[in-house]
Nucleic acid binder design. Structure first.
Lengths: 220, 220
DNA sequence: TGATTTTTGTACCATCTCGCAAAATAGTCC
DNA sequence: GGACTATTTTGCGAGATGGTACAAAAATCA
């Protein structure tokens, strides 16, 4: 009953101009925006510490509207996480679109991660996957599956990055793309955690640089 | 009630120093044991998702006793974390006591971490530092300082490990102990997160092995 | 024995929690 | 204009939450 009879207007644009006008009282909120606000909150505080009142205040929707639009708290959490993943995936795909040296690609990936983790008005927002893994993944199989999926997606992206590099001769034949990818993912996880402890951007960038050097064999 | 109401008469160390015998009603619990139970719970569920009722049930203490012994929920959380850190530090010190090849020492450190993260009756317990960083560190300066301290402690331990190795000629002169330590820490963080998503011990061990190989220059 | 001290057990409070059901509102379609 | 539809608003209720008050219980001390 919530989103069943909703017209397939998935794209946000056709709504405002000459679109197939929705019947009934118009919404006082924009779902995309509201979901973004919810995402911010969940990312900052985690699931349990975020109350419906918090969400209601942040989104500007009162609880029943929230409930009607996104389902209960857990569903909203899952939808927020999905949206987060989509955004992360998009910026990742962007980096993989054009051709460039491995080092540069790695730098851009890590820079993108840092931007995601450090941006935020009230402090670093961190990584949703890490927050979720820490709190909800143990007890909720569905959420755990999403976390697992997020982790392996990152692994695969890095692995393909290193595989390409090997093909182009940027890495020695002895290099193992999967192992290097796990190290790169680990670096991401590490800066995700450290960013929450308010480690400075400078230090995090230094960690990234050191990790890249080792992975590309500049050191050692 | 988990802890039975047996008198603590012959507790591990009831009273030291000639036993000036506590006056008043004897405790029905052992603080050390109770704190351990609280630690388990917090580690599993995080701060917000753990209620005083949960803690009361797990420790076998009712709320007033809990409050009297450890203070409010936040204080209990902090005390739990301190105890966790002490245990981790102890097992780390153990590994640093005797002399051994770097690879072996690294293997033992990671094995110790894996044991800590994976043990648990109701599933992997994960790393308190990661859980705390994800949930509480952003909002609570005191807790954040503890997390930061825990992170740098691990970094330093690894750094000293690599420094020793370099002195003994186990690593090339070009190796940077600090950078390698950050990579090692990152690997720990990564397996801490992955363990919560129920990644199998086997996979985690493979990640560790790959990371060690790269750090010691066996690959590349 | 009785006084003192410490802990325990029960009960309680004020607040917050999530979820829901009406009722009011604002638009579209005929 | 009136019927219809989708959304918002208000408000509620059963239960959980963190924290506390108070008296009974159990030990030591005098």
């Amino acid at each position: 009953m919530v989103q069943k009879s909703k017209p397939p207007a998935v794209a946000s644009e056709p709504e405002r101009r000459g679109g197939p006008k929705r019947r009934g009282r118009p919404r006082a909120y924009e779902p995309e925006v509201a979901l973004g606000k919810a995402l911010d909150l969940f990312r900052k505080q985690g699931f349990a510490a975020t109350s419906l009142d918090d969400l209601s205040e942040a989104t500007g929707m009162n609880r029943p509207s929230l409930y009607g639009a996104f389902g209960d708290k857990r569903e909203l959490y899952i939808k927020s996480y999905q949206r987060y993943r989509e955004e992360a995936r998009a910026s990742m795909a962007e980096i993989f679109r054009e051709d460039m040296p491995v080092r540069q690609r790695l730098e851009r990936i890590f820079a993108s991660a840092l931007n995601i983790y450090l941006s935020g008005e009230t402090g670093p927002r961190g990584c949703f996957t890490v927050v979720t893994a820490a709190s909800e993944a143990v007890g909720d199989p569905e959420i755990r599956a999403m976390v697992l999926d997020g982790l392996t997606e990152l692994d695969k992206a890095f692995a393909s990055c290193f595989r390409r590099a090997k093909e182009k001769g940027e890495l020695p034949e002895s290099a193992d793309p999967v192992v290097l990818a796990q190290l790169a993912s680990a670096t991401v996880h590490s800066i995700a955690i450290r960013s929450r402890a308010r480690v400075s951007r400078k230090e995090l960038e230094a960690i990234v640089k050191g990790a890249i050097d080792v992975m590309l064999g500049a050191k050692q």
